[in-house]
Design a protein around this nucleic acid. Structure first.
Lengths: 205, 205, 205, 205
DNA sequence: GATGAATGAGATTTCATTCAT
DNA sequence: AATGAATGAAATCTCATTCAT
């Protein structure tokens, strides 16, 4: 009945442990059966908790899934930042490092990626959100290139950002579906070729 | 329980007219409210027919939607074939004509495209199917280029086909969402730049 | 629109032929898949006729089935009458002949019997009707025995008729289910023993 | 889609009470209107519960009905066991006691019996199951008699078991339909005569 | 904090029957 | 006589969410 209850974000170690159990149980179930086929009650049961406990920690199944996904994406970002620290901003080398981290991430998070981008659009809204985030980043880079005169005039930054973000997420999803479809190196080189990123010299139209 | 096959050839004018009324009613409803929010009973009602009549013509809501979508895609294909008839196969001009037809189609079928590619993945399976079809076509072209030595060796045809198909469908969906986001010409030129298609000379690596 | 149409019971040779095609198609379908799983439209289709034609000849699926069943039962009765013509009424010999005809009939009409008495009570009302008819016959015989003093006083004719009719129909159904369960002779002798029928002498209590 | 098993042990008093309310409501409705004419939603409503609650306790209407029926049969068995405890196994006295309990049971569970065995075969599968259970019991007894030499050689135990089980269930159903059709004593004596059970001396063929 | 029993809205699909042609 | 397209009522079962304990 106390309205401020939800504000106790983290609180006791017990609460944190319960939350973790729910996250772990959900991760396993989502990987195995997809988002749709798993119910909140089932997640709670697998975590050894009661149905209602679920709602003490998460608004619903989708918010929990967002948490899992964005936690993973945060770790990817962190690794990309570390990897690019010593490299020249917007350089080809930085782009390669950036893609390399994505490739490693894909290999390590196949199940998660398949749930987000596959499974018949179960989490299409989330996939869309990720796509838009990636597209924004890419558009920023394209605008910096444009300012340097390093962008072909035929390229509309907004459109190209959509196109390249879609290429990236799609290739990642396609590869995650079956890692034997290509080698890590083929993925990286092909994406690098399609999105040359920090070319130093103005590209001819 | 569905023992026998078609059984209904399409036959009588009355039958054809009824089928058309269902298709029209469904198109209008899907455009207005999306796939999920529309029921088969509602489609029948809007068409001035009884609920059960729906099932005399379509297996379910999704099969009807597929019919609408693939009918539209067939007409796009037909127009692309007509447009490219006089042009040199795998040439840049053919690619431009191909993209122009897609642009026209997008302008004329905004609602349909938004239902297929937007709306939170309601028809993700269908979108996926279309993507794969496009990807197959693009891969064929890439393989022909590869055979001509016109493909950079860094480009893995399978990966590149996924990437370019994703670019194309995504840009189309993004534009259909709001045609003011770009001009038709910007769409065509940017896509043409990203997927140069029939370059005559071997591209430097 | 003419009200007397149904009165044209038999009429033209064409009508008779159509009716026969419906009966034959229905017999085959019922035998193969049971009463419930077959629709009137399907019967018509198998007969090479239109859906509506069915209703020109039969009220519905069940009335058609009754027709099939009672036609068969009429033929059984006829054969029983023929067989018992030379035998003494209510004698043991007559009872044996009566049972023998039932056994032959069962062997020749396995499918029909299985649909009537098996299949999870699909045609329970019809089975019940047959049971009652058999029970009435048996009760008549018991009352004649009672009048002759040939019935144990402990036997209530109404109750015993129910019991014996149930024995008979059940054994027939059980045997029809799989003829290898018993020989024809075992069926006849066991039923004869359970329902001695025309015992000449007063049975000791 | 039903992934896991029971999950609901029966547990809390509240749960048990809810289950009982559903059983009671269903019993009343089935007795009044038969199995087919009653919906699961209606049972829940009559029990003062929500529709979905029904499915928390029973798979569906039929499983609930089975529960009611087999609970009743279990109580009959228990009473028969008690009644026959002091009597000689396979004796005529035991058979009479066994039939007496059936008669009492029939008087006390008329509605239930009428739903199971009447109503146009609504629950024919259940009736069949009960018949087979009774037939198995009877066949066991017949085999013991055969071993003792107390069975006429003309009697095939399998066939006779089917016959006698059918007699029994049919007479019970017939009587339950209208108890004024016979007295309890007439029922017992007639069945006892038809199925002498533990006759001491070898029966003449 | 945790429990877990209860809630209840709502789309799907079939098929016996009709009747305009 | 035959056609066959159209009718339309009705019961099922799920699962996210709540709230009394």
């Amino acid at each position: 009945m106390t309205a401020e209850a939800p504000l106790l974000k983290s609180g006791s170690p017990r609460r944190i442990a319960t939350r973790r159990r729910l996250l772990d149980a959900a991760t396993a179930l989502f990987a195995a059966r997809g988002l749709h086929a798993v119910t909140s009650a089932e997640i709670a049961r697998r975590a050894g908790l009661a149905t209602g406990t679920f709602y003490l920690h998460f608004d619903d199944k989708h918010q929990l899934f967002r948490t899992i996904v964005f936690d993973a994406l945060d770790s990817l970002r962190a690794r990309q930042d570390t990897a690019s620290r010593a490299l020249e901003p917007d350089s080809r080398a930085e782009m390669r490092a950036w893609l390399e981290e994505i490739a490693f991430f894909t290999e390590e998070n196949r199940d998660l990626i398949r749930v987000v981008f596959g499974r018949g659009g179960e989490s299409a809204a989330l996939a869309e959100e990720i796509h838009e985030q990636v597209a924004r980043d890419i558009e920023q880079r394209l605008l910096r290139q444009q300012a340097r005169g390093a962008l072909p005039v035929a390229l509309h930054p907004g459109i190209a950002a959509q196109a390249r973000a879609a290429s990236l997420t799609r290739v990642v999803a396609w590869w995650a579906h079956d890692l034997r479809r290509a080698t890590r190196s083929e993925i990286i080189e092909t994406l690098l070729h399609l999105d040359p990123g920090g070319g130093q010299n103005p590209v001819p139209n």
